[in-house]
């Protein structure tokens, strides 16, 4: 039996592979929503990522970080769609229509429009690094590997992403506000609107 009988090569997954994949889905969805600004697009991305991960389980190296592997697949899928659409402004309408369709108890816990809008104003290569390191908990080295750049480039992108996000959200340096005011400014920036 040969490997190329029309179907992609797909070794049987271990139980561990399947369980870790399922465990990562919710965080991966948060990554996809934050990256794309749209629940609808995020779920398309997640679906495609899941299918690719499932049929390419052989390319996952056991003992390495599955989250980093999944983020790699999702990010590549996102950017290939992004390029096809000719770098148009991301479809942010989706985030509002999805929110409208969300049950009230769920919607009340997340008012993401201000924060998400600020995220979408970042350059994509800054936004994704911020999400990888600042939210998904990947290391600088993992992010560098995924982006194909040096660790120093990751650090500078992260710094610029944080600085720009702080400006957009109106988060000021604590030197003239006092420590308490910084978190208040975040709360205001995050919950207003």
């Amino acid at each position: 039996m040969t490997d190329d009988g029309g179907a992609p090569k797909r070794p049987a997954q271990t139980k561990e592979f399947r369980e870790s994949l399922i465990r990562e889905m919710k965080d991966l969805r948060a990554f996809a929503v934050s990256l794309s600004g749209s629940f609808h697009q995020a779920d398309d991305l997640l679906q495609e990522t899941l299918l690719k991960a499932w049929s390419n389980s052989g390319s996952f190296i056991p003992g390495t970080n599955m989250r980093a592997w999944l983020v790699t697949i999702l990010r590549n899928t996102y950017y290939s769609q992004y390029r096809k659409r000719g770098r148009e402004v991301p479809d942010t309408d989706g985030i509002y229509s999805s929110r409208l369709a969300t049950p009230p108890n769920q919607e009340s816990s997340v008012d993401m429009s201000d924060f998400q809008n600020a995220l979408l104003k970042l350059a994509p290569e800054h936004r994704d690094v911020l999400l990888m390191v600042g939210a998904s908990g990947l290391s600088y080295e993992e992010a560098a590997e995924i982006c194909g750049v040096a660790v120093g480039t990751i650090k500078s992108r992260l710094n610029r992403a944080r600085g720009r996000l702080a400006d957009l959200l109106g988060i000021k340096d604590a030197s003239d506000l006092g420590i308490g005011s910084v978190s208040e400014a975040v709360v205001r920036a995050h919950s207003s609107g």
């Binding site: 919710k26 965080d27 969805r29 948060a30 990554f31 929503v33 934050s34 969300t102 769920q106 816990s109 997340v110 993401m112 924060f115 998400q116 995220l119 911020l130 999400l131 600042g134 939210a135 998904s136 944080r162 600085g163 996000l165 702080a166 959200l169 988060i171 000021k172 340096d173 604590a174 910084v182 978190s183 400014a185 975040v186 920036a189 995050h190």
Partner: peptide
């Protein structure tokens, strides 16, 4: 500021991950 931005980001991220 890094800390404040980081916490706002994590709140945003967690809110989606909990859905």
């Amino acid at each position: 500021v890094v800390d404040a931005v980081g916490r706002a980001l994590q709140r945003h991220f967690q809110a989606i991950a909990e859905m």
